[in-house]
Simulated scan of single mutants.
Amino acid sequence: MPSLQETQPLNLLLVDDEPLARVRLRTLLEDLAPVCPTRVLGEAENGLAALEWLQNHAGEASVDVVLADIHMPRMDGLELAGHLAGLEQVPAMIFTTAYDNHAVQAFELDAVDYLLKPVRAQRLQAALDKARLRRPGPDATRLQALGQRLRGGRSHLPCHERGRLLLVPVAEVLYFKADLKYVTARTREREYVLDETLTHLEEEYPERFIRLHRGALVARLALAGFERAQEDGDAYGWALLRDLPEKLPVSRRQWAVAREQAGA
């Protein structure tokens, strides 16, 4: 006799930038309903939209499984998996894609399964059955490190603020500053407190950010120039920013290196 867990529907979130692909998944799920009960709670066209959907529906029925394409605009399925791993309730991941060159990476990301399009009913049922038996979520730190290696850097950084997950676009960050065990990311609009380290960020984005001193990285595109400090102190010089009136200190050790990297 099947257990209650085996008969209760799995709550799903479908994530694919192709509407027809989502329609096909819904059709397959309806066909499988007698032997594999599921309930589609929502749909999203990319990873960002999926995270927004989860935020907007927090407190409602939790998502058990996310079926996500890998190649999507704005945020792909691999990066989505990394952000999901940081949530309090981590859904299982099943990747659906037209390409077979990410299978190894998908399983390294602790995905339940990896389905090639066009998805077949038998394979989908097998993947959902595995998801039903699997409950522990993937390790967020391992996903972050692996995601960095696979994609050359995340497009968004997570900021947990007042019980919500905010996503900071890396392209909008003007600088990072370290403060105790946290790092502050500054955009034109505001500051975000991140659970990151400067060393990790410097390694993840070597082409985008320049080290100014042990406590700061600045975006190359945000630099307006450099000036020498007028008095002795912690700063040997200052980095001038294009969009903010404030200056960032540059250490003696990093002065020549930062200027050379910036082409100054």
Rank of each mutant, 00 (worst) to 15 (best):
R132K: 08
R123D: 14
A106I: 00
L124S: 02
Q122G: 07
L116R: 04
R123S: 11
D129L: 12
F107V: 03
R135N: 07
K117L: 01
D129E: 15
L115N: 00
L116K: 03
Q122W: 04
V119C: 02
L116M: 11
R132L: 03
P138K: 08
A131W: 06
V119T: 12
D139A: 13
L133Q: 15
L128S: 04
G137P: 05
V119G: 01
A111S: 15
H102I: 02
L128A: 05
Q125P: 05
Q105I: 03
F107K: 05
V112C: 12
L116C: 10
L109G: 13
D139T: 09
D110F: 11
K117G: 00
R120W: 05
L124Y: 02
R132C: 05
V119R: 01
R132E: 06
R120I: 03
A121M: 14
H102S: 06
Q144L: 12
L133S: 15
L115T: 00
Q122C: 04
E108S: 05
D129V: 03
A121L: 14
T141W: 04
Q105Y: 08
L116T: 06
R132N: 08
L128I: 07
V104M: 09
L128W: 03
D129M: 11
R123Q: 14
V119E: 01
A127P: 14
A121R: 14
Q144W: 14
R120K: 15
L143D: 03
R134V: 06
R123G: 06
K130C: 07
L128D: 03
T141K: 11
Q125A: 13
Y114L: 00
A127L: 08
Q122S: 11
D139S: 13
L109Q: 12
V104N: 02
L115R: 00
E108V: 08
L124V: 04
A127M: 08
Q105T: 12
A106P: 01
D139I: 07
F107H: 05
Y114G: 00
V104W: 03
P138T: 04
R142Q: 15
L143A: 09
V119N: 01
V104E: 08
R123E: 14
